[in-house]
C-alpha cells in the first residue's frame, strides 16, 4: 500500500485553511481508488471502468460483475434477460445456507450466480450466460444449473449459438448432491445443443474451477480465456495439500492451460467483443446478420 498522503498537495501558506485545502484539491477519496494486484499502482476507479476493468498500466484483468460484462459484450439495448425469476431455496436444509444466500443477494444485487438471456453481439443474435462473482463466487447450485440448462434449450429452440462467460469456484456444497447433478444436467443440454449443429463458445474468466470447469466450461466448441485467469479442476490450495509442495509460478493460469492444449485462444477483454463477433460471423449462415 502506498502512503495515504502521497498524492496530497503539500500545504502552503496560501492554503492554510483546512476547508480551502479540501475543496481545492483534486484528490480522490479512497473508495474510488484501487491498487492493481498486477503492478501495485493505484488506479482511479473511473479510468478502470472506462478501460473494461483492465489495468491501463499492466493489463491486469480485474473481476467484473455479470451486468457490466453484458453491457460490454452485447450491442446496446439488445440484451433481454431470461429465467431471471428463478430463486434458490434451501433444498436440503443446510445450516447457515439461508443466511449465506441473503448475504449473496445483497452483495451482488442479483437473485443467483448466473445471468442468462438473449442478445446481439456485433449484430449476431445469440443466447448468453454470464456468471456472477459477487454471488458466492459463481458457485453452481440447482438454480444455476437450471438456468444454464434452460439457456441451451432456448438456444436449440431458436437455433442460436450460445456464448458463456464462466466464473466459478465449483459446485455449491450447501446443496449437496443436487448441485453435483447439475454438472450432468448442463452437460446433457450442451450435448443436445451441439448435436443440433449449433455453436457454443465459452470464455473462461478468473476463476473457473471445480464442477463448472469439469462440465460446461470445458465443453465449448471454441474455448477462449482471459489473460491470467485461473483455470483448473482442483484449486491451487487443494493441489498443494495433495502433493505437499509449492506450485510453480503461473500454474493453472490461462497461458499455462493454453500451452497444455486446453484453451483455443487468450483474448484481452478489450478485444473480446470484436473477437466474438468475428467467430460468430464465421459460423453464421447467410442472412443471420
Amino acid at each position: 500500500m502506498l502512503p495515504k498522503g502521497l498524492f496530497q498537495k503539500p500545504k502552503n501558506e496560501l492554503e492554510s485553511s483546512d476547508k480551502y485545502a479540501q475543496s481545492a484539491m483534486p484528490s480522490v477519496p479512497d473508495e474510488m481508488c484501487v491498487s492493481c494486484p498486477g503492478c501495485r499502482k493505484t488506479l482511479v476507479l473511473g479510468e478502470l471502468t472506462d478501460n473494461c476493468h483492465v489495468c491501463p498500466k499492466c493489463g491486469h484483468h480485474f473481476r467484473m460483475n455479470a451486468r457490466q460484462r453484458i453491457n460490454l459484450i452485447c450491442d446496446a439495448d439488445s440484451f433481454e434477460e431470461l429465467f431471471g425469476e428463478l430463486e434458490t431455496k434451501d433444498l436440503i436444509h443446510f445450516p447457515g445456507y439461508e443466511k449465506k444466500l441473503k448475504h449473496a443477494r445483497l452483495e451482488s444485487a442479483e437473485k443467483e450466480a448466473v445471468i442468462c438471456g438473449s442478445g446481439k453481439i456485433g449484430g449476431f443474435a445469440c443466447a448468453l450466460f454470464v456468471m456472477e462473482p459477487y454471488f458466492m463466487m459463481g458457485s453452481m447450485g440447482t438454480v444455476v444449473g437450471e438456468k444454464i440448462t434452460r439457456t441451451f434449450e432456448y438456444a436449440i429452440e431458436h437455433r442460436l449459438p450460445v456464448i458463456g462467460f464462466t466464473l466459478s469456484g465449483g459446485a455449491r456444497m450447501q446443496e449437496g448432491i443436487l448441485s453435483l447433478m447439475q454438472m450432468a444436467k448442463t452437460s446433457g443440454a450442451v450435448k443436445r445443443h451441439s448435436d443440433a449443429g449449433l455453436l457454443y463458445i465459452t470464455v473462461l474468466t478468473d476463476p473457473t474451477t471445480g464442477g463448472v470447469s469439469a462440465s460446461f466450461a470445458m465443453e465449448g466448441d471454441i474455448i477462449l480465456a482471459e489473460p491470467g485467469a485461473l483455470i483448473g479442476f482442483a484449486g491451487p490450495r487443494v493441489i498443494e495439500q495433495t502433493i505437499r509442495q509449492k506450485l510453480p509460478p503461473g500454474f493453472q493460469r490461462a497461458e499455462f492451460v493454453q500451452k497444455k492444449g486446453f484453451v483455443d485462444a487468450i483474448v484481452n477483454r478489450r478485444e473480446e467483443k470484436a473477437y466474438l463477433k468475428k467467430l460468430l460471423g464465421f459460423h453464421a449462415s447467410m442472412g443471420d446478420e
Binding site: M183, A184, S187, G188, V190, K191, S194, D195, T209, S213, A214, S215, F216, A217, M218, E219, I231, G232, F233, A234, V238, I239, T242, I243, L247, F251, Q252, K260, G261, F262
Partner: peptide, 23 residues
C-alpha cells in the same frame, strides 16, 4: 488433485465423459 492431473486436463476429461455418456 495433483499437478500432472491438472496438466493433462482433469476438468476436460470429466466434462467430456459427462457429455458423451449422456448420448
Amino acid at each position: 488433485c495433483g499437478l500432472d492431473a491438472e496438466e493433462r486436463g482433469q476438468a476436460q476429461a470429466i466434462a467430456e465423459n459427462l457429455m458423451e455418456m449422456m448420448a
